Computed example of a mutant assay.
Amino acid sequence: MTVLALDIGATKFAAGLVHNGLEVPEVRRVDVPPENVWAACRGLLLEVVGDTAITAIGIGSAGPVDVRTGVTAPLNIPEWKSGFAIVAAVQELFPTAAIRFAIDGACLALAEHHVGALRGIPNGLAMTVSSGIGGGIIADGRVVMGRTGNAGHIGHIVVPGWDVPCLCGGVGCVEAVASGMSSVRWAVQQGWQGKTGLQLSEAAQTGDEIALAALHRAGTALGQAIASAAALLDVDICVIGGGFAQSGEPLWKPMQAALDKHARLDFTRELRVIPSRISNGATLVGAGVLAAGAATGEIDPRP
């Protein structure tokens, strides 16, 4: 069985062939262009596959998604924001392959549950804090999908005290406050001169006051959101991955402080928040698990 995994992110597409059901040794990426988005994604898939015969395909996408219809509508991809039939498009490329599709947070949860920090943990939350913020839920040992496949979309939990408009149309979503893109936007409004979340993290490490304030702001909002999720879900562990999550103490210290302040019930106090141990392509690994499980009948992610 040959499995192809595709990750549709806010700013990049990533794809790779999955080995042994759990490894993606070679990941190729391409920036999401402002237009002709499918052409870029299609080109990447054909480059990765070459002459290989594909048995199964797993697709993890930034949301919202509708796994019932195979449509993705990522907020940060304007050309697809009203909906793109990704499953039908990929199926046309690979007509004999079995395809499974899920929100990227569910794929992240699958990866953590199979090879990461949630392995052997029956109840957990997996988060990615990067250009955007996403998440997936493990409950009683299974990934929770929800009615349309969007369960775990923690980026749109509303956090108190933040009147920030979100791309979803709401106000005060944690993604609008604490994501890498949102934090950079806020820092630039305060006079910071950088452009990326990585630069913002590096500036905070050198003591830049605006960068430190931006990460403190983001960490506080993340802690508030995690406290709310912990009360709702009653989980053992929250594992956090993603590029912006690697900002270190300037982000993690205020996050833990906000969690301690807001998670006051006995069962929420027991929650452990830890960094992901999956260093490369967690969503792709999860998409591979999704595809391999679907091909063998072991995993059916449909709501």
Rank of each mutant, 00 (worst) to 15 (best):
A218T: 09
L118Q: 12
L212H: 09
V188H: 07
W80F: 12
M255I: 08
S183W: 02
L22Y: 13
Q199N: 11
G60E: 07
A10T: 03
G132P: 05
E92A: 15
A117Q: 15
C173G: 10
N123K: 01
A282D: 11
R29W: 08
T220W: 07
R272M: 09
G124A: 09
D266P: 04
A245P: 11
C107P: 11
G242D: 09
N123C: 06
T55P: 00
N123Y: 02
V24L: 10
V49D: 00
W252I: 08
A10E: 09
H153M: 10
G152L: 08
G169E: 06
Q91S: 12
T220M: 06
R272Y: 00
V49K: 00
L6I: 10
A5G: 10
T296N: 13
G161L: 07
V18H: 06
A245R: 00
G134F: 01
G286Q: 06
A291N: 03
A214C: 11
F13T: 12
M127V: 03
L259A: 01
N36M: 09
A5W: 00
T69E: 15
V67P: 12
T69Q: 15
R119Q: 13
Q91H: 14
F13Y: 13
C107V: 01
K81E: 14
L290R: 03
G43I: 08
I299A: 02
L45Y: 11
T206E: 14
I133C: 12
G105N: 10
G169F: 09
A221Y: 10
E35H: 11
L198H: 10
D300N: 14
V143R: 01
T72A: 12
F94N: 08
V177G: 11
R277Q: 14
R277N: 15
V158Y: 04
A229D: 11
G281T: 12
T196H: 13
L6A: 01
A176H: 04
G43V: 12
A39L: 14
P78T: 07
D140N: 15
E35Q: 13
L44R: 14
C168T: 05
A106S: 14
P64G: 05
K12Q: 14
N36P: 04
A245C: 11
L233G: 10
L108T: 10
